[in-house]
């Protein structure tokens, strides 16, 4: 995990209020290229809120987020114009939703779902799009013969893997995931985690993974942030925090008293 370089993402004092209610408050951290950060905490602690602000899906009430673009220049995400922001979202970033129906076009074939981002950045050769889609389906362990089926005909685990392929096809550098294994059976979860771990390592992806599940954090992440009532109360290397939690709240989490 490289740390010498300037960070890929810098969050400073990120706050999101819903009226008087706190979504998340004063969150500050750096994320480096290739680094996987897990965000854990009980229900309502602000994990999804933080993720949606970081990924520019929601505007922060206060704070600043900078992202180092492919040209090496760090930009304030909320100063990007809409065209730049949307381009970032569909090229250099990925977003994996807990519910794959939110991240897939359910009426479009698997090949079309994977190919969409390629076409969005100007690929106009059907044969190449199809080849790339086949390659990506293989990488997420979906049989090539299913390429023309729509995700409606897929199982939950397959849909989730397809959503991942659809996001990774443009070789993004940063992927946001909100409970990526949330809706799945335990055995399906294990396989997906394994796959995700392999892909993240192979591609050198940076990722911010929101999860209830400390086992997911343990398996996928290098670092962990523990949230409570919208604030980050503890942060550190994943193994250290999980093996030797400092905060009493984290100790309870680790002891599985809270979920």
């Amino acid at each position: 995990m490289p740390t010498d370089e300037a960070p890929l993402l810098m969050a400073r004092g990120v706050t999101k209020l819903y009226g008087h209610r706190i979504g998340c408050q004063d969150v500050t951290f750096d994320l480096h290229a290739g680094e996987v950060l897990a965000v854990v905490g009980e229900s309502g602690s602000g994990k999804s809120t933080l993720l949606s602000v970081l990924s520019t899906r929601a505007e922060p009430s206060a704070g600043r987020i900078e992202y180092r673009m492919r040209d090496g220049v760090a930009r304030d995400l909320f100063r990007l114009n809409e065209a730049e922001r949307r381009l970032l979202l569909r090229t250099d970033w990925g977003f994996v939703h807990q519910d794959p129906r939110e991240g897939l076009r359910m009426g479009i074939s698997a090949g079309g779902n994977v190919g969409e981002r390629l076409m969005a950045v100007g690929e106009r050769h059907y044969g190449r799009i199809r080849e790339t889609a086949i390659d990506w389906l293989g990488r997420v362990e979906i049989d090539e013969s299913r390429i023309d089926d729509t995700p409606r005909a897929y199982s939950g685990g397959m849909r989730q893997r397809l959503q991942i392929a659809r996001n990774l096809v443009t070789a993004p550098r940063l992927v946001f995931m909100d409970e990526p294994t949330g809706g799945l059976d335990v055995s399906v979860q294990a396989r997906l985690l394994d796959l995700l771990r392999g892909l993240v390592a192979d591609l050198g992806l940076a990722a911010i993974v929101v999860t209830h599940d400390l086992a997911v954090a343990r398996l996928l992440s290098h670092r962990i942030m523990v949230m409570r009532h919208g604030r980050v109360i503890e942060t550190g290397l994943t193994d250290q925090v999980l093996d030797d939690p400092r905060e009493p709240y984290t100790q309870l989490l680790v002891a599985s008293v809270l979920t």
Binding site: G112, E116, A120
Partner: peptide, 16 residues
């Protein structure tokens, strides 16, 4: 924003 990739998805589906 002249984001028209989606129209090609439709044509892709046709060919597929």
């Amino acid at each position: 924003l002249a984001e028209y990739g989606l129209m090609h998805v439709k044509l892709y589906e046709d060919i597929a």
